[in-house]
Design a binder for these strands. Structure first.
Lengths: 238, 238
DNA sequence: TCAAAAGTGTTTGTACTACACCCATGC
DNA sequence: GCATGGGTGTAGTACAAACACTTTTGA
């Protein structure tokens, strides 16, 4: 490998060539108000000043992808310690009008309640948008968001990633609502409960959620000791 | 997005910065002699001269990933028109001793029989290795190959990608052998047949494979008209 | 006592698993 | 005619889908 470039090494070190810039773009999913939401930033500068985009940054020369992700989350969003997963790398030569930029997309899952104040300080330039009511994001970001949603939909069918979006304690109805929201279709209440309990993804805390005007449901918690066993929701994706 | 770098735009165009090089590395899978094989190149130059590596090349400034893939396949391997899929992007800062190189890995599926002569002309520096008998590839390529295998294993359970590895006409026993080989476990002959026929992935050609010393099995062909319907092999992966 | 959501169990159908026998062919 | 692998059918089982009633709570 590297032969093509390797022949040129006599000329100059290979990383001194004009290489495309590498941007990390984050699709940050949050769940709030019974809706799956995506975090967008309002651009101040050209190109696309005034348009909404995914939070992102250029990869610095010595950074890993994860470090760039954390830098974006920390400096732009005041967030840390999220569930993060690499999504896909986007390479269309015209995807950024300023020049050649490769985007390595990651997606993150967070509980917006934990960052309510941080988001407040950022005022108008950072906002949650319900998926499906996005303000036509700039660049190829609609494409990236769509890919992230598809990945998330597939992921929660066999991996307990959804809990990252909820409070530590939650009711089964709340997880189900989340799942219905991500998958975009209704699920049978009783089958869903059995499936989750059988999979042992969740354990009861013993407490109940109070303050409701009807029966108080039991609270559960993600089962961290679980040796990550098999689990399939067997739901047809579109 | 792009804020951090954007502040520096007064200084110089953002793509003039020292960016990491981007390499495309290909995991080319072939199926031959009843074994799943990976194509490796023997390096002539340092670092790792004499070691085996995945075929790869640096992304040229104006190329898409796919174009780089095709360039590698064409110029180094004499192959074209393969099934190609992006796998993952690898970012460890020390993955290449020469400097910072991001690797965007793709995997390809081919039928080695179609390229028998091309491979012959390349003599000793290009070789198929059965997966599981790899000669300790250089760089982080063992990691990339492992990721590609896992992806392939998951993929063939719900998508008819395996046919890329076979001749146009094949027997059901041949696909099954391929699947067993990729998944690394035996499958029930009768259930496998029923599953594949029910899924309508394959259609009989009417001909039979002759020249065997026992009953001549029917030949099938991949059903191209299929509206890519649902299909799950429901096999537990390790 | 009523409305609203939580909790529970059963039935039915489908789909995977496991398994045994006959069929075609070359030697 | 016999060894070898191809072709077929079936019974058992496990799991998902569909579904109705009782329980708890606040108003």
């Amino acid at each position: 490998m590297f032969t093509l470039r390797h022949n040129d090494v006599k000329l100059k070190p290979f990383d001194q060539y004009q290489n495309p810039a590498i941007a990390i773009d984050l699709v940050v999913f949050g769940y709030d108000q019974g809706q799956l939401q995506v975090l967008l930033l309002n651009r101040k500068d050209e190109p696309f000043a005034g348009r909404w985009t995914l939070p992102g940054a250029f990869l610095q020369f010595t950074e890993t992808f994860q470090q760039t992700c954390r830098r974006i989350l920390d400096t732009k969003l005041g967030m840390s310690d999220l569930y993060l997963e690499q999504l896909y790398s986007f390479d269309q030569p015209d995807r950024d009008p300023r020049g050649r930029v490769i985007a390595v997309a990651y997606y993150a899952l967070i509980n917006p309640a934990h960052y309510r104040t941080a988001a407040g300080t950022m005022a108008n330039d950072v906002r949650w948008f319900p998926i499906g009511q996005l303000p036509d994001p700039a660049f190829d970001h609609p494409l990236i968001i769509e890919a992230a949603l598809k990945r998330l939909q597939a992921k929660i069918l066999y991996h307990p990633a959804g809990f990252e979006l909820l409070d530590q304690d939650f009711t089964i109805a709340e997880i189900q609502e989340l799942y219905e929201c991500i998958l975009g279709r209704p699920l049978d209440r009783r089958n869903f409960r059995r499936k989750f309990l059988d999979a042992r993804y969740i354990v009861p805390t013993g407490a109940k959620r109070g303050g409701l005007k009807n029966r108080h449901p039991e609270l559960y918690r993600f089962n961290k000791e679980l040796p990550l066993q098999k689990f399939h929701l067997n739901i047809e994706l579109p």
